[in-house]
Simulated assay, not measured.
Amino acid sequence: MSLTETLQNELLALARQSIEHGLQTGRPLPAKLDDYPEELRQTRATFVTLERNGQLRGCIGMLEALRPLAEDVAENAFAAAFRDPRFPPLAAGELADLDVHISVLSPAAAMTFASEADLLAQLRPGVDGIILQEGHRRGTFLPSVWEDLPHPKQFLQHLKQKVGFPASYWSDTIQAYRYTTEMFG
Rank of each mutant, 00 (worst) to 15 (best):
L3R: 05
L3H: 07
T4C: 02
T4Q: 05
T4K: 03
E5G: 02
E5Y: 00
L7A: 12
Q8E: 14
L14H: 05
L14V: 02
A15G: 12
R16E: 04
S18E: 04
I19C: 06
I19A: 15
E20V: 14
E20D: 11
H21W: 12
G22L: 04
Q24G: 00
R27A: 14
R27S: 12
L29G: 06
L29F: 06
P30A: 05
D34E: 15
D35N: 08
D35C: 11
Y36D: 03
Y36G: 11
E38H: 10
R41E: 09
R41Y: 06
T43P: 00
T43R: 06
R44E: 04
T46C: 15
F47W: 03
V48C: 06
V48F: 05
V48N: 09
L50D: 06
R52E: 14
G54S: 07
G58M: 06
G61W: 02
M62W: 02
L63W: 03
A65K: 00
L66I: 00
L66W: 00
L66P: 01
L69F: 01
N76I: 01
N76D: 07
A77I: 04
F78Q: 03
F82N: 02
D84F: 12
P85M: 12
P85V: 10
P88K: 15
P88Y: 12
P88I: 00
P88R: 15
P88G: 03
P89L: 08
L90W: 10
G93Q: 11
A96S: 13
L98Q: 07
L98C: 07
L98H: 06
D99Q: 13
V100L: 14
H101T: 13
H101A: 13
S103A: 14
S106N: 04
A108M: 09
A109E: 15
M111N: 06
T112F: 03
E116V: 03
E116F: 03
D118M: 03
D118Q: 08
L119F: 08
L119Y: 04
A121C: 04
Q122N: 05
Q122Y: 05
Q122W: 08
L123P: 07
G126C: 06
G126E: 01
V127E: 15
V127F: 09
D128T: 09
D128W: 08
G129C: 04
I130F: 05
I131K: 11
G135T: 10
H136P: 01
F141C: 05
V145N: 07
P150L: 05
H158T: 10
H158Y: 08
L159W: 13
Q161A: 12
G164M: 09
P166N: 15
Y169L: 14
T173W: 06
I174D: 11
Y177R: 11
R178Y: 04
Y179Q: 10
M183W: 00
F184R: 05
G185W: 05
G185P: 06
